[in-house]
Structures are given as structure tokens and as C-alpha cells.
């Protein structure tokens, strides 16, 4: 078991839920990302997802697309993100997962990617355009070398597909709370809770919910039945609002602490 599994286990013992924060690596630059990871850890985030910028992020809404474009302007690549993690590992043991589209990984070479990720201290990988049917090769390499592969379940997944995704996933299962792309939504779907309960019938693995979550009350609600809550676009939007300001890292930290108050209160 690596850092992700250990973190869920520790939290489970305390009866707490995981707060998972997503930021795009290299938005607006790698030095800021580095500071943000450390800041988020200080504020109590349990797991961090680092987005690898990609030119064609078709599962993302406008907020994360824009972040990806900012990072690509600085030519931030998968290699840079791996180097950043390696560097961060001198200072932090927070569980880190990469969220990357498949092509940069494929171009790098699956085996080489997994090897370098593990050596650099990455704990898991999430590939939004890689369903289990196409993901066996990556999963097998990852399993062999101890990298978690987190696959996604969607509201449109059939019971058979839920079983398949659960079998392929390690670390946790990522439940996509809505049919759509990433981005902040006013309301959360009422179907989330019953679906999580349905997924639980197929697996004992932790289930985290992401997409659309942006407010402390929403965090609290999701945490009342899921094992983890993932917030992405709302945090990235905070980064965007503070671009060019000296207090960017602190402002984002404060925002995340606020979101976290929801989850820690509920316990």
C-alpha cells in the first residue's frame, strides 16, 4: 500500500473523510505550484491531484482549460511535473496523484512513465480519457511497480461497468458526480448518494466524489456518505482570480481551509 491507501486508512480509523484538492501544475508557473502544494498540505488537505497540462483537455470545462493553457504557455510538460514531484518529495509526504490525459503518457511510454513516476514519488495516476477497456497495459505496469491507478465511474455507468472500474482501480474510485465536464455547479445532483451506495455493493475500495463541488456545504454533504471529496475548478478559479498578486498562495490556502471547515465540522 502506498501513501494514498495509507491516508484513507488513517482517516478511516479516525472516522474522517479525505479532502482531495486539484490544481493544474504550472499554473501560472511551477514555482507557484510548488508553494501551493505545501500550502494546501499546511491547511489540512489530505491528497493532492496535480493536473498535467494538455492541449486538448476534452473532459474539462473552461476554468481548467484556461489553467492548462496558462501552463502550456510556459511549456510545462509531463517531464516537468514529474521533476516537480521529485523535488517536492524532499519536503513533504502528502499523497500525490497525477491527473493526465492519455496522450502525454503514451508518448512518454507507459513503462517509462510508471517507472519515473514511482521513482519521483508519485502515488497514483488518473487518466480521464482512459476507460478500463484501454487501460489494462498501464494498470499492469502500475500494479507491478506500486503506482495506484484511479479509474472513474460516471452517472451513466452500467452495473457491469461499475464492477469493471472497481476491479481496475486502486487507491480509490473516482465518482464523477454529474454528466458533463469539470466546473463549478450551483446544485449537486440528488442521485449522487444512491449511486455511491450502489458502487459500495461492488467494492470495498474508498470512493471519492468530484466534479462541480465548490462550497463548504457541498463538501459537508458529500463527506456525509463518500470517503473523499474532490475539489478542482473552484480552487483553480481562486488561482485565476489571484494571478499576478503576491498573496496568491495564501488566498488559495484560505479558500481551501474554508472548504475544509465543512468536512472537519461534520465529523
Amino acid at each position: 500500500m502506498n501513501r494514498i491507501g495509507e491516508r484513507f486508512e488513517e482517516l478511516g480509523k479516525k472516522g474522517e473523510k479525505a479532502f482531495i484538492a486539484f490544481i493544474t501544475a504550472g499554473d501560472p508557473d511551477l514555482a507557484t505550484t510548488r508553494s501551493l502544494v505545501l500550502e494546501l498540505e499546511r491547511r489540512g488537505v489530505d491528497i493532492i491531484e496535480l493536473g498535467v497540462p494538455f492541449s486538448d483537455s476534452l473532459a474539462d470545462g473552461p476554468t481548467i482549460q484556461a489553467a492548462s493553457e496558462r501552463a502550456l504557455k510556459n511549456k510545462v510538460s509531463l517531464k516537468d511535473v514529474l521533476a516537480l514531484v521529485k523535488d517536492l518529495r524532499r519536503e513533504t509526504e502528502i499523497p500525490l496523484a497525477l491527473l493526465t490525459y492519455y496522450n502525454p503518457v503514451y508518448k512518454c511510454g507507459l513503462e517509462r512513465f510508471v517507472k519515473e513516476a514511482v521513482e519521483g514519488g508519485v502515488d497514483g495516476v488518473i487518466v480521464p480519457d482512459l476507460p478500463p477497456e484501454e487501460g489494462k497495459e498501464l494498470k499492469d505496469f502500475a500494479q507491478k511497480m506500486g503506482l495506484d491507478t484511479i479509474f472513474l465511474v460516471a452517472p451513466t455507468s452500467t452495473p457491469e461497468r461499475i464492477k469493471l472500474v472497481a476491479r481496475y482501480s486502486s487507491g480509490f474510485i473516482y465518482y464523477v458526480s454529474l454528466t458533463g465536464v469539470t466546473g463549478v455547479r450551483e446544485e449537486l445532483a440528488e442521485t449522487i448518494k444512491p449511486t455511491i451506495n450502489r458502487i459500495r455493493r461492488s467494492t470495498g475500495k474508498p470512493i471519492a466524489v468530484g466534479f462541480g463541488i465548490s462550497k463548504p456545504a457541498q463538501v459537508r454533504e458529500i463527506a456525509s456518505f463518500a470517503d473523499g471529496v474532490i475539489v478542482g475548478s473552484a480552487i483553480v478559479r481562486k488561482v485565476e482570480e489571484n494571478l499576478g498578486r503576491k498573496g496568491l498562495v495564501r488566498e488559495v490556502g484560505k479558500f481551501v481551509e474554508d472548504l475544509l471547515s465543512g468536512i472537519r465540522d461534520s465529523e
Binding site: A59, D129, F151, T156, S157, V176
Partner: peptide, 12 residues
């Protein structure tokens, strides 16, 4: 070829 798409589209 293949099907490299988000899970949401797989059933469709």
C-alpha cells in the same frame, strides 16, 4: 482505433 473516452460516454 479503440475507445479512449471519458467513462461518461462509454455506455453511449
Amino acid at each position: 482505433g479503440g475507445k479512449f473516452v471519458p467513462e461518461t460516454l462509454m455506455s453511449a
